[in-house]
Design a protein around this nucleic acid. Structure first.
Lengths: 206, 206
DNA sequence: GTCTATATGGAGATAGAC
DNA sequence: GTCTATCTCCATATAGAC
């Protein structure tokens, strides 16, 4: 935890290095020595700013959660538009936000991976919950005021969009290696096709 | 690596313990001491059967890959059925296979998470490639002989199904915490709804 | 094949000077 | 706030008896 006098330049460098290293190597693989070297301070200085490795990790994760949940603001006031266009923009923006800060995204997704109920609840409250709710609202509006079928659960459709974006973010290199995949380096194309399928399905119109 | 005389009972216990612990705690968090205790052998005995921690991990991962890629056999010879029914069965079976061996699935997904190109290529060759290709074949057949639209890429649809199942497997606890989600403990319901959406889309028929 | 005992290094964390 | 030096513990790995 930063001192109550406010974070210094060094503690900022420490958190930045920790974020980068924890995200890429994993908590247990990274030593305080690694972080100290990357931040260009001594080991002891790390323990001056943060009482333990665990505490440094928690602070790092907290900042990554902040970075990962900031999307919803920009989309709060566009309720006048077509649900389909809202959905498309939201999925594209969500994907870009994840790709724009890959270390934060990776750290949060690692936490979410097979999390215990307590940690999962925290992550939903801090990160996923708001965006998920926003997306279910788009679906509900599409069903009530638009032309969308009412026999599909908004929560399931929102989960499917979350799954699509999470998979693209977390397993992009696997996508690159799969035969026939030409969208692994074009997130907008991916998002658009996913939304198209969601809207129209794959069966021919009757 | 097991001796060329064949794996003994003890080495089987060691691999089983390693699989369980590596999957749940992560490679770096697990010590040889932990594994030895779980397998009820001495530390030195672990090093008798496996030259290093890394080698034990590689052998464990190899077995998990085998366990994870065995689905395709059972579905090789049902080409006479409706593509929609094939797809539904395949998605359900793929989900169940992942859920039936959660440790193996978790270990493989951890490897796939943000993997470098070389590791990703190996995983595609060893695990994901065959199932992915099988799924794209179902989509291609549906487009050519069935009544499916031809303007969606089979590779993208297969990726979306892979994403749906991976997300359900890896982030199930997060799903449980999300409001409105009632399918987190009913994989068949989830698979069916996902396939329904893929087939029909969410817009009303014209 | 299995063990006890040990070598060696690096981890997290602290003491105390500046 | 920052450092060097140090403590203690536990990691991987080896030696060698049985």
């Amino acid at each position: 935890m930063p001192e109550h006098t406010g974070p210094t330049e060094a503690s900022e460098r420490i958190v930045a290095a920790a974020k980068r290293l924890f995200a890429r190597e994993g908590y247990s693989s990274v030593s305080i020595r690694d972080i100290a070297e990357a931040a260009e301070v001594s080991k002891a200085n790390v323990f001056h700013h943060f009482a333990s490795k665990e505490e440094l990790y928690v602070e790092t994760l907290r900042r990554c959660c902040e970075s990962a949940r900031s999307l919803i603001q920009a989309f709060a006031e566009d309720a006048g538009r077509e649900p389909a266009e809202q959905l498309r923009d939201f999925v594209r923006a969500d994907l870009h936000r994840a790709l724009d800060d890959p270390d934060a995204t990776r750290l949060v997704l690692t936490e979410a991976f097979d999390a215990n109920p307590c940690r999962a609840r925290t992550l939903v409250n801090e990160v996923f919950g708001a965006d998920f709710q926003r997306m279910t609202e788009i679906f509900s509006r599409g069903q009530h005021t638009g032309s969308w079928r009412r026999d599909a659960s908004p929560a399931l459709m929102a989960s499917l969009m979350l799954a699509a974006n999470t998979f693209y973010t977390a397993h992009r290199e696997v996508l690159r290696q799969l035969p026939g995949v030409d969208f692994a380096d074009d997130p907008d194309q991916y998002a658009d096709h996913v939304v198209d399928i969601l809207l129209d399905g794959i069966q021919k119109e009757a």
